[in-house]
Design a protein around this nucleic acid. Structure first.
Length: 432
RNA sequence: GGAGAAGUGGCCGAGAGGCCGAAGGCGCUCCCCUGCUAAGGGAGUACAUGGUUUAUCCCGUGUCGAGGGUUCGAAUCCCUCCUUCUCCGCCA
């Protein structure tokens, strides 16, 4: 959520900023609503003031034993007027909130212009692209014989865009998670957290998935109980970002405790509505996948540097696995709703002859923190101030598995196990 | 799942329809005192938001788990929900 004061003081400037990312803010509508709000709110508060002062004098009169009947008669119609005004204000406020909650974050000045992923800018490249003197296969063809990777079984159990893994494949998948977590904990100073995989609506509003992106989420139905408005609705998490970032929701943390650095492994659940027909083959786009997430909550002055640090932590995993990748900075049009600036790490997939996203690292600045009132006490001003929140994948486990299988393949269709993973797999050198 | 108790500021905790944005304590900030340390004395210290403002100050409004209701007036009474604790049941 943007600072409402920013919108009030200079909507046009904000609209101009938002236009960079292709978001059209209707400044006219906002202005009209905002002007109405001002008059209505002032009027309502005047009425409330009147009620409060009169009620107080009634109380005082009563205490002195005076007759309060005449005073009561004077306030007879105040209640109705006030109730009407309050309800109008509430409705108007809801309209304004709808607009404000639907406005994406302002972009960092360093974000390049552009409309789509084609305009993202490559920052750096790492690793030598592997060369093969044989016909290479993709991860589905490499994984499917022996049933190491079984998409048909998964579609029987559940449906499309799920997978079953067996033996060495399942074990390497698990090994990757341990390896990533251990690296972030032991070498990058993150604290591991275990969190719920289901969250309530407040959490999803906090990180920005709601109200705009409900169709991407799975909502839980509790038995055959009808979803009731008065009861809490739970959703499966689309990323660990949601539960972990919401740890600081409605908290005022000590400045001394910053930066707070968390890592978590969770499954992620995405309905992938709107992506039908895209990446239908294999493990790239699933309804359920594992991810190791890294997050930092920092003072505003530190967030720019923290983003660089966070990306480096994600890159370290790719380097240890010796997977060639490149780092791109997302252009204005491709940067996500809540993000101010995003780096993607793209790993080399030889079978696709291209780089594919494997990590997305973003600085949200105070956008999420404002929504969830996540603050720290500034020792200088002694006042609570909004934190900056950052998160990134470190890394997406399924896609890392794909990258390993394709980059480490042999002519006979076997797959070598990266040396850093072998200790996690009982010394296994060839996947089986 | 059943029965009971509770949710108040950064933390603990008083508070039972008007004098309560809320006693007291802890913590924190500033000042005084003491050679250092320890101890002591004084003052200040919730958050959000509207008007005004670069910002403060000031005035107002809202907030005592959340949302509704009763009332001229609600932390306090009523209803619904959420959460926590205790006991019972079930269970990995």
């Amino acid at each position: 959520m943007l600072d409402i004061k920013l919108l009030r003081n200079d909507v046009e400037a904000v609209a101009k900023q938002l236009a960079k990312r292709g978001f059209a803010l209707d400044t006219q509508v906002f202005q009209v609503l905002e002007n109405k709000r001002k008059t209505l709110q002032t009027a309502t508060q005047d009425l409330q003031n009147e009620r409060n002062t009169r009620s107080k004098s009634i109380g005082q009169a009563k205490a002195k034993g005076k007759d309060i009947q005449p005073l009561l008669a004077e306030v007879a119609d105040l209640g109705d007027k006030l109730k009407a005004a309050e309800q109008d204000l509430l409705a108007l406020q809801a309209d304004i909130d709808d607009i404000v909650m639907g406005i994406p974050n302002l972009l960092d000045d360093s974000v390049p212009e552009g409309k789509s992923e084609d305009d993202n800018v490559e920052v750096s490249k790492w690793g030598e692209l592997p060369t093969f003197d044989f016909e290479i296969k993709d991860h589905v063809d490499l994984g499917s014989p022996n049933g190491l990777m079984d998409f048909e079984a998964a579609s029987k159990l559940t449906g499309s865009r799920f997978v079953v893994m067996r033996a060495g494949m399942a074990r390497m998948h698990r090994a990757l998670i341990q390896f990533m977590l251990d690296t972030h904990i032991n070498e990058h100073g993150y604290t591991e957290v275990y969190v719920p995989y289901m969250v309530n609506e407040d959490s999803l509003y906090g990180t920005g998935q709601l109200p705009k992106f409900a169709e991407d989420l799975y909502k839980i139905q509790n038995g055959d109980k009808e979803a009731d408005k008065s009861e809490q609705n739970y959703y499966l998490i689309p990323t660990a970002e949601v539960p972990v970032t919401n740890l600081v929701r409605d908290e005022i943390v000590d400045a001394d405790s910053l930066p707070i650095k968390y890592t978590a492994h969770t499954p992620c659940f995405r309905s992938e509505a709107g992506s039908y027909g895209r990446d239908t083959r294999g493990l790239i786009r699933q309804h359920q996948f594992e991810k190791v997430e890294i997050l930092q909550f920092v003072k505003p002055v530190d967030s720019e540097q923290a983003l660089e640090n966070l990306v480096k932590n994600a890159e370290a995993i790719l380097k240890k696995l010796e997977l060639p990748y490149r780092k791109v900075v997302l252009c204005a049009g491709d940067t996500g709703f809540s993000a101010s600036k995003t780096y993607d790490l793209e790993v080399w997939l030889p079978a696709q002859d291209t780089y594919r996203e494997i990590s997305s690292c973003s600085n949200m600045k105070d956008f999420q923190a404002r929504r969830m009132q996540a603050r720290f006490r500034n020792p200088e001003s002694t006042k609570p101030e909004l934190l900056h929140t950052l998160n990134g994948s470190g890394l997406a486990v399924g896609r890392t598995l794909v990258a390993i299988i394709e980059n480490y393949q042999n002519e006979d269709g076997s797959v070598r196990v990266p040396s850093v993973l072998q200790p996690y797999m009982g010394g296994m050198e060839i996947l089986k």
